[in-house]
Amino acid sequence: MMITLARSPEAQAAAAAEWMAFNDDYLIERIASTGRLEVIFACVDDAVTRLQSLVSGERSPDSRVLWTTEVQGHHLTVVITGDADAVVEAGRLLR
Rank of each mutant, 00 (worst) to 15 (best):
A32H: 07
A32W: 00
D85A: 13
A47M: 12
W19M: 08
V39F: 01
E89D: 08
V78D: 05
A14L: 14
E38G: 05
H74P: 04
D46W: 08
A84V: 12
L51D: 04
T81K: 03
R30S: 11
R7D: 05
A13S: 13
G35W: 14
Q12E: 12
L5P: 00
R7Q: 15
Q12V: 10
T81Q: 06
R59M: 13
Y26W: 08
L54I: 11
A6V: 10
Q52T: 07
D62R: 06
M20Q: 15
S63Q: 07
E58W: 09
S60I: 02
F41D: 02
V71M: 02
E58D: 07
E58K: 03
L93H: 13
W19I: 02
A86P: 09
I3M: 11
L66D: 13
V71Q: 08
R64I: 00
A13Y: 00
D45R: 07
L5Q: 13
H74M: 04
A42N: 15
V48I: 13
I80L: 05
S8A: 15
H75V: 02
I3C: 01
H74I: 00
Q12W: 04
T77P: 00
T4G: 14
L51N: 15
F22G: 02
R59Q: 12
M2C: 01
R30A: 12
V65A: 05
L94I: 09
F22W: 02
V88A: 13
L37S: 10
G82L: 02
L54W: 06
A13M: 09
M2W: 00
D83M: 07
Q12C: 03
R64D: 10
L37A: 15
R7V: 02
A32K: 03
D24C: 06
W67M: 14
A86K: 04
V87R: 14
E38Q: 12
H74N: 12
S33M: 01
A16W: 08
A6R: 14
R36N: 11
R59G: 05
Q72W: 04
N23V: 15
A17I: 05
F41T: 03
L66R: 14
R64V: 02
R59P: 01
I28T: 03
A21S: 15
F41M: 08
E70F: 02
I40M: 01
Y26T: 08
E58R: 06
S8I: 10
L66G: 12
V88H: 07
T34G: 00
D46M: 05
P9F: 08
V55F: 09
Q72Y: 06
G91H: 13
V71A: 06
H75E: 15
P9G: 05
V55E: 10
I80G: 04
R7F: 01
A13N: 11
A6F: 09
Y26K: 01
T34H: 01
D62Q: 15
F41C: 08
A17D: 07
A14H: 14
S63M: 02
S63T: 03
G82K: 04
M2F: 04
E10Y: 15
Q12Y: 00
D62T: 08
